[in-house]
Design a protein around this nucleic acid. Sequence first.
DNA 1: CATGAATGAGTTTTCATTCAT
DNA 2: GATGAATGAAAACTCATTCAT
Lengths: 223, 223, 223, 223
Amino acid sequence: MGRSSVGNRVPRPTRTESDTERRVAAVPRTTDGDGTPVPQRLLAAATRLFAEQGYDRTSVQEIVEAAGVTKGALYHYFGSKDDLLHEVYARVLRLQQERLDHFAGADEPIEKRLRGAAADVVVTTIENLDDASIFFRSMHHLGPEKNKQVRAERRRYHERFRALIEEGQREGVFSTATPADLVVDYHFGSVHHLSTWYRPDGPLSPQEVADHLADLLLRALRP
Amino acid sequence: MGRSSVGNRVPRPTRTESDTERRVAAVPRTTDGDGTPVPQRLLAAATRLFAEQGYDRTSVQEIVEAAGVTKGALYHYFGSKDDLLHEVYARVLRLQQERLDHFAGADEPIEKRLRGAAADVVVTTIENLDDASIFFRSMHHLGPEKNKQVRAERRRYHERFRALIEEGQREGVFSTATPADLVVDYHFGSVHHLSTWYRPDGPLSPQEVADHLADLLLRALRP
Amino acid sequence: MGRSSVGNRVPRPTRTESDTERRVAAVPRTTDGDGTPVPQRLLAAATRLFAEQGYDRTSVQEIVEAAGVTKGALYHYFGSKDDLLHEVYARVLRLQQERLDHFAGADEPIEKRLRGAAADVVVTTIENLDDASIFFRSMHHLGPEKNKQVRAERRRYHERFRALIEEGQREGVFSTATPADLVVDYHFGSVHHLSTWYRPDGPLSPQEVADHLADLLLRALRP
Amino acid sequence: MGRSSVGNRVPRPTRTESDTERRVAAVPRTTDGDGTPVPQRLLAAATRLFAEQGYDRTSVQEIVEAAGVTKGALYHYFGSKDDLLHEVYARVLRLQQERLDHFAGADEPIEKRLRGAAADVVVTTIENLDDASIFFRSMHHLGPEKNKQVRAERRRYHERFRALIEEGQREGVFSTATPADLVVDYHFGSVHHLSTWYRPDGPLSPQEVADHLADLLLRALRP
DNA sequence: CATGAATGAGTTTTCATTCAT
DNA sequence: GATGAATGAAAACTCATTCAT
């Protein structure tokens, strides 16, 4: 539950993933320092450094040094520095979409489902503040093609969330005073903002912040 | 309502400002192409480019070319690229603080004053979207000293705004369910976020967006 | 007896030297034009140019052009232009200390040992006039840390030499009229000065100059 | 008797000197801070800065700031940065030549005259250590023409000094074991070297150092 | 699989000097 | 006499990427 956590899926652009999942020994043997395989180590190092210093301020050299490998190794696993950033995004997007789907699809009244989703995105954002910082500050560093791709996924997420609000508005439990689109942006603004002000050693736990922000959203939506 | 607007104060890093304030004609007459003096031209070009491409992705070369001057001229007026960024910040901070003071000090009930301030910051942010983008994406590019300075001014602004909410809470017109601090961050999250999604050619005018967002804030604060 | 001679040690700033000592073949085989490896070529070019034009007047561009490599290559081997200068110093200091130790530790009367050391430093200085010019004109260009390091080694050399004189003074074969410290500076003043006036095509061979200067020193020390 | 002292002759390349000597009021009225006229202030500032940082490391901007004038003023009095350096040299050379002439032409035995000259150059060098540092470290920074000029004056000085030694050798009071030329360089080597090791707060006064060094010279010349 | 030497275009910044006022 | 804005060329250094081994 540290600042940044690299998921357990190995991005291997040059290989298919399916066959490495099953046999543990298939993961590249090169695990030098600790037991973590090289690509994960690179991704973790890149995530931390990108969050700390920004994408442009982080050199490939720094990343490979932090990961304890050589440049050749990085370019063996990732096509470019850009690729590395894209992988970070991919991981976060996948995670958030999964969690939203889970909460949105629950068998509960709309109010509960929205509150659950709204609070959960806050908690997971705080638990991965590094990823969040990168996400909201470095998106424009992606090349146009990958940028498009990320934006598309982002939009799917936004629409899924908006659908929840519209559902509540149709049922009359949420006010229609404000367009659902705007409400989504209102809430996600505060989520983005978390990486600016939230400190793990502050007075509020992630869950408390999440409850407060979800509360504000639902209070604003009261008819 | 342009994207970016450069103020009318000439930055003169090597001198105190006081003596140039008196004589209006002291502003360098060197205005080459158009009638705008060089420092303003540089500031305007930098603002636009920083917003479009980010601070790190914008080279000094690009800035001086856009401003139609030479690199030497830039370094004659500004100590560094960093300085240029700082000037953008200083201008925005000054403007926002002034406007907040105006609304907060008005002779009106607290609800009206908060709504006025909350809506106004949205309108002026939209009217200076470039400045806003820079503000919320590039602050960490400032050197540590200037960073401190900007953060301090930022904090003053935050506290002024928080005081409004607390005033309403004390009077009983705003709910105390959420700490005022968190409410401020909630609102400013959505303000920061504007530069991500707001498009001038979209369906909503700046004022409409402002009214909606201020409305959401006040609805969330209803007891 | 060339103007400058670059040693056979490869500077590898990013690694400890110990592991490259073992395997002779570890010296990079990349020797483009002639057979000399890149770092040596750079060091030789830098030495010549620093001596001819001074440190500040020599651009990194000139060095890499003279060495027939690119700037990137230089910065691959040396951390900075400063580093390059430091390597020149390190080589000279090592050489001089070795030779002094050799003469000072010989099994001979003190007069012969001092004369031998005093003459030898003249010969080797003349044989490496470039290094000497750099040494005595560019030391102050080193950053403070490296400056300290060089000064410390320099002092060790000075003290070793002074010890010889003091030994002779204690034995009564050298006059005690002048403090040994001052005598050392007197002699080394003339050694430094060599790079100002000595010309290889002049009437005196290095050995002749050395004999004369050592003679002056010993005559001045006669009781 | 501070580190560096600028003589009382105003270098005015663009004007004749003769008419400003007589009438005090003819000295340019621009004496801003203290009462010293601008050119002297510039020369003094340049001398100090050149000695401290070297010629190349000292910018024209630093000089004018230290002197409390503007760049325009500097270029009004001196044709270039190079000119400034040349003026420093000219002053030192003039002074040393005068003093040597004085001692060499005295009505005394050759031994006394040589000792006097040898000691005096040490004292005046120590009293103007800044000038000396500049002299021995920055001569090669002069353009070829001025370089030639300085070298010529330097040679005159050297020859004057050598003549003293040869006179003694002819009279049989100095040994002829070493060529007079070499003896001169031996002594001046130690004079140059002074700026490397002499510290005003050290144990020896300038006169003591001078006596010791002159003593060493004369002892070395004993037949 | 992995290395690390090498590239080359790029970066920000400095600075002596000029010139209109 | 003096100003200081502006120039333009050059400075040191960085860095993502490639490729022979």
